[in-house]
């Protein structure tokens, strides 16, 4: 995405925050639109976030999840999405375990499709909401250095974070053990560097995003048993960050693995709940854009 596009979404999301907080109603984007949420991979906050965003926009959502649906009878991703689209919904929000799955569905249906996370590929609204939370904290991302720590290779959040952060002028350092952060990931954009150690780069950080260790996506034996010693955001390690440096986590957190309890609950530093709040606003802005594009 271009910088202007990212900024337009973030600006709109910021304007929508009062609607998220319930202090003001958002204007309706369209009469009685129904969105189909096709969530074929486990999700709690992303699905609820999209549902909330849809409700705040005065629209309705129907949701399907993989358990108890036809996907457990072996129906393919595209067939499932086609059927939901055929029910006459005005847009689809898709979470799937296949990289490229959301785009594949978009090729096959006539309604807008919002990617809510496709395999290891991308999670665009997460990237945008992380940027929104950071921008609101730091003022601007221009020239800032942001550390992303964890299993970058398997992380769709990391990819989308990289794209939205760098679009806004930030530099990114990808941090983790070599098994999780191969050198070629530096190719994901300009001003991206790879570090296989966390401690030596802590003092460069203007912000830290720590990722969840995804046991469901890493083949057995790739998570070092001493991950916390090298890369966990422990209280001790956070003392080496400048005091104002914020910490983000996309959730759900493995407490005591990639982030310690005390850090997660340090409200002065840790933006996790702020991320969730911005998430609803960003998704409202994205859904508005998707619908405007569809009718325009």
């Amino acid at each position: 995405m271009e910088r202007t596009e990212v900024e337009a979404i973030l600006d709109r999301a910021e304007a929508l925050l009062p609607a998220v907080d319930g202090t003001r109603k958002a204007t309706q984007i369209q009469e009685s639109a129904v969105f189909g949420l096709v969530f074929l991979e486990d999700s709690t906050r992303t699905r609820l976030s999209f549902e909330t965003a849809i409700h705040r926009l005065g629209q309705r959502a129907v949701a399907m999840t993989s358990t108890g649906s036809s996907t457990s009878k072996g129906e393919s991703l595209v067939d499932t999405a086609r059927n939901v689209a055929a029910m006459g919904v005005q847009g689809l929000v898709v979470r799937c375990r296949q990289s490229g799955g959301a785009a594949r569905i978009a090729d096959e249906v006539d309604v807008p499709v919002v990617n809510a996370g496709d395999g290891r590929h991308e999670h665009p609204t997460q990237g945008l909401l992380d940027a929104a939370a950071l921008r609101s904290r730091l003022g601007s991302l221009e020239g800032r250095r942001i550390l992303i720590v964890g299993d970058i290779g398997n992380s769709r959040v990391a990819r989308s974070d990289i794209y939205s952060f760098t679009a806004l002028g930030a530099a990114v350092t990808l941090v983790g053990p070599p098994s999780m952060v191969p050198w070629h990931l530096a190719s994901l954009g300009h001003s991206i560097v790879v570090s296989h150690e966390l401690d030596p780069v802590l003092d460069q950080a203007d912000a830290v995003v720590t990722l969840r260790i995804q046991r469901e996506r890493s083949s057995s034996g790739t998570v070092p048993s001493d991950y916390r010693e090298g890369f966990g955001l422990t209280k001790d390690r956070c003392r080496n960050l400048r005091r104002e440096v914020p910490i983000l986590h996309p959730g759900p957190a493995n407490r005591g693995v990639e982030i310690d309890d005390g850090v997660l609950e340090d409200a002065s530093r840790c933006l996790v709940l702020d991320q969730v709040r911005h998430g609803v606003a960003v998704r409202m802005a994205v859904l508005e854009r998707a619908m405007a594009g569809a009718s325009g």
Binding site: G100, G119, R120, H121, R159, P182, H184, S187, L188
Partner: peptide, 18 residues
Amino acid sequence: TRDATMHEGVVSARLGLV
């Protein structure tokens, strides 16, 4: 090559494919 679906390199990194 467990779970691998394309060459390991710049393109696989971008596409999020093993």
